[in-house]
Amino acid sequence: MAQLTYRASVSLAIAQSMRKDQKVFFIGEDVGAAGGVFKATVGLLEEFGKERVMDAPISEQAILGAAMGAAMTGLRPIAEIMFSDFLAVCWDIVANQIAKTRYMSDGQINIPLVIRTANGGGSKFGAQHSQSLENWSMMIPGLKVVAPSCPSDVLGLMDSAVKDPDPVIFYEHKSLYAFKEEIEQTDISIPIGEANTLHEGKDITIIGLALMAQRAKEAALILKDKHDINAKVIDLRSLVPLDLQTIKKSVIETGHVLTVEENPRLCGWGAEISSLISEHCFKNLKGPVTRVTTPHVPLPSADILEDNTIPSVELIVNEVIKKLKGE
């Protein structure tokens, strides 16, 4: 039993995958000698050497292009894009090339690669280093989208992502890097596409991802202690593939649903979930599916502004009370 941070679980997860499979290599900016700007890849260069841990220039297209080409030959690259916001400068490689090449080639080409990237707000970095961009990749056919909320999920989902024959975008949440968990077994595997229940309850279903899943769990504890409301908190863990069955099962029990998203409102993943619930569970609903998101604004930087933009535990608590008690 050891206590592990989310940050340390990233480097451990990569190391475990690299120890198991010589085909796995790691490429990114400042990832080797510097150990990553978030210190999430410390020790990898020392263990695996320059041939497998490659410090790349600030060339996001070249990084992902090289990872894609290598994956086309059967290697299994893990590529880092330092901040998920930087995906915008290499989005052609992600959305047009990596995502579509398997389909366009009629299955001649597999692209087994992982793009891991630091995502989300909470660090007061402003609008270009804080975004939650899972929904960007969710809407592109051919990409799998993973966003772990705790160290054990980082370990288990990274293992599956590296072994996956399809491209996986692995969103690590910056505000979770210091999150700690007692871990018994580090060499674990969690299938991509299985949601996790963070809190049991039959009054309402709260659906979250990454940091928002953890905040939803905190909200559920308060709701139980102070308001006698039992909320089921579902941590999706991946948007594609999506565990619709777990959502359906809970909605049938509770009849109330709140999604909690860190992204701006329009076209957030919660809208797709809401649509699916309407299609599949309409008769079970006791009220409208509602969404908590950041407002439709770029993220501001100042403490008070950012803190009041990203959904807080308090906001989630209040939304649930409003839904269930009409207050």
Binding site: G65, M68, A70, M72, T73, Q97
Partner: peptide
Amino acid sequence: AHLTIANGTALASKY
């Protein structure tokens, strides 16, 4: 785009 991707197959040959 493909110049960057071609680097990848070349990188694989080297690797």
